[in-house]
């Protein structure tokens, strides 16, 4: 008997569906389990879009509040993880817009300052990565985070961004090119 490679993924999907059913049945502990499974992933996406750790943590809290309220409407037409990622992306982009209106996200320098990792951990490559990310649009950062950090397929990215797989491929190509241009031209950034 052989076990296919898709077996673990199917088991995870079943576990998500089981958690959703338990939650809808009134088991509040099921949501704790969902939160534990997706908290780090949602934070990674939020951090990739917002760059600031505190803003990302706020976005995670807001995203899970939305997930908690809207989980009864989740009819499992898609994976729970993809649905959660979509909420995370939308929430983070909305938080980014709010910060922009408040004047906290207006300058590239400020964004880069927030994007730079801790000095003792930072390497030259990290600095270049975060400086390049800070100059991208939040939507481009979202595509790169989903593709390179969460290893989502183009179809899953399209679902998370509320677009098709082909549109996601186009967005990824453009975002990757912009990022490469910024990454390979460090001398142009202050």
């Amino acid at each position: 008997m052989t076990v296919s490679a898709a077996e673990p993924a199917r088991l995870n999907l079943d576990e998500d569906a089981c958690l959703v059913r338990r939650f809808l049945a009134g088991d509040a502990g099921a949501f704790d389990r969902i939160y534990a499974r997706y908290r780090d992933k949602v934070y990674v996406i939020a951090k990739g879009i917002l760059l600031d750790p505190d803003d990302a943590a706020d976005a995670v809290q807001e995203a899970f509040a939305l997930i908690f309220r809207n989980l009864p409407r989740f009819h499992q037409r898609s994976r729970l993880g993809t649905w959660i990622f979509r909420i995370a992306v939308n929430t983070s982009i909305q938080v980014s817009r709010k910060l922009k209106h408040k004047g906290r996200d207006v300058g590239i320098e400020a964004a880069m300052d927030r994007a730079v990792p801790e000095p003792d951990e930072a390497t030259e490559a990290d600095m270049k990565i975060h400086q390049a990310l800070a100059q991208l649009k939040p939507a481009d950062r979202a595509v790169l985070a989903l593709f390179y950090w969460e290893d989502l397929s183009l179809d899953e990215i399209g679902e998370a961004l509320s677009c098709g797989g082909n549109a996601a491929k186009t967005r990824l190509y453009r975002a990757r090119e912009r990022f490469r241009e910024l990454f390979e031209s460090p001398e142009e950034t202050p």
Partner: peptide, 26 residues
């Protein structure tokens, strides 16, 4: 470098999370 720059979850998230006391009605 981009992959290595993947953010790590912070412990502060645990302090921010307030587990719900009651699941909403479907």
């Amino acid at each position: 470098a981009f992959r290595k720059a993947r953010p790590r979850a912070v412990e502060a998230l645990r302090d921010r999370y307030n587990p719900p006391q009651r699941a909403p009605v479907s």
